[in-house]
Design a protein around this nucleic acid. Structure first.
Lengths: 251, 251
DNA sequence: TGTCGTGATCTGTGATCACAGTTAGGTTGG
DNA sequence: CCAACCTAACTGTGATCACAGATCACGACA
């Protein structure tokens, strides 16, 4: 009964007088979001997945999720259908829908694809980044350092800041479809990566991520595309190596 | 209507049943299809999109599609929802759902991503291809040559053979998630690319595609990954250049 | 004690209904 | 003759109902 997703119906408060010639005040407000319920549920599940708050192998029930979010089963169906099409969720033939458990081979493939795609994004970002882009990256980097250096480390904040840092970089490349591709990769790899970081915040103490971020940031500042790619690849490879060591992957 | 449901690429691997006392006759029959209606409709729409049989800007109606396919509106909703999540279709806020019309900038970005991703796939395929993989590529190459060299050129067969040729190559890389990524790119670029090839089969007469395919095939045979990437990049670039010339793209 | 049948309960899938919003076409007033 | 309004048909979205299949627990038989 938790009413988490309520304010949809009441969002249509706009009178919009019909017989009025358009004045300057009308177009001041851009097109209001008009987000559908299914999209909202999709976003909710996506953020839960990339944050690692849904563990691999965890089963989901359409009715349970619907009840938890205070909506009907219909929007949840749409959200799960979309995420299943992306491989972020999987629906077993007759059973329930669950978060996929990656095999070692699947994780290795995902890591290789991340190196290729996100490496390219880092190169392009180093070439195209504006000062405003760099400022955003710096801010998220500071947030990540603070969360990771705290005692004890704030794993949830570190996960969020790490995500924001990476996507601030990728958005500097100004390639929307590329960002969608990377989001899909994160959706698949997020559950293991960030579930682990959440459970084992000691990994942050090694500082390899902070070091890679520092090199990345400096490379972007110098517009050094190959160096940016190298730093990002180190960041991805270090995290992947740690996951492989812990051995939470299927045979 | 058209029962051209292609063999589903997203092969669903079933785990072995846990409490099974394996007899001889049981495992002879593989897992029976068990394809849901929504998945079938999704596959149907996907094949229509990549084949260019749905023109950019064309509007779709859930009820019309449902009636045409002889199913309820429900599976069509699911299919459209999935394809919209992939960007292969777009649902306007209050209007109908339509095939997106790409802007020039979007098409350029898509082409760059194809060069990166499919180029990587070609390299990996050149390294990993088995003789059976090469045989399949050869067969589709022959089909493409025949369709393109006919008088008049069989544009529909050429489009299909070109798709089969490319994906036979990519499947040789043995990276399922990579293939999903490429399928998504083709889903977005397919409508313009193949709609044009369908309308302007003269493009095939230039022979640039056949020449690139020949170089590609030879490179794979020699296990020459850089050469395979170069040949594939030429193939993609030539097609993209032709589309840009015709100027069917939005401003 | 171990194993298999069996029914209750839950699962996703599909169909049907209801509704607000948009669009298009016809009509009326200028 | 043109423009504005107004009605009717159609759009996707969401809810509710119906159903086949799967899971799990309990109980009977060997």
């Amino acid at each position: 009964m938790t009413a988490a997703v309520q304010p949809s119906r009441t969002a249509f408060e706009q009178p919009a007088p019909p017989g009025e010639t358009d004045t300057s005040a009308l177009d001041a407000i851009g097109a209001l979001p008009r987000e559908t319920l299914g999209e909202r549920v999709t976003g909710e599940l996506r953020s839960l997945l990339v944050a690692g708050r849904l563990a691999p192998g965890e089963k989901l029930s359409l009715r349970r999720v619907a009840e938890a979010l205070g909506v009907s089963m219909m929007p949840v169906r749409e959200a799960v259908s979309r995420l299943a099409a992306d491989g972020a969720l999987e629906v077993l033939p007759g059973r329930a829908v669950r978060v996929p458990v990656l095999s070692l081979a699947q994780f290795r493939e995902l890591t290789r694809l991340r190196l290729v795609v996100e490496g390219f994004a880092a190169e392009e970002a180093a070439r195209q980044a504006t000062p405003a882009d760099i400022d955003r990256i710096v801010a998220f980097d500071a947030a990540f350092r603070q969360a990771a250096s705290a005692d004890p480390p704030d794993s949830a904040a570190a996960v969020a800041a790490n995500r924001d840092l990476h996507f601030a970089l990728y958005e500097a490349a100004a390639m929307p479809s590329l960002i969608e591709m990377i989001e899909r990769l994160w959706l698949k790899a997020g559950p293991i990566l960030n579930l682990d970081m959440r459970h084992e915040p000691r990994r942050l103490e090694g500082g390899s991520a902070m070091q890679a971020h520092a090199r990345l940031l400096e490379a972007v500042r110098r517009r050094d595309a190959p160096a940016a790619r190298a730093a990002l690849e180190d960041d991805i490879a270090a995290a992947a190596a740690h996951i492989k060591e812990t051995g939470q992957l299927r045979a």
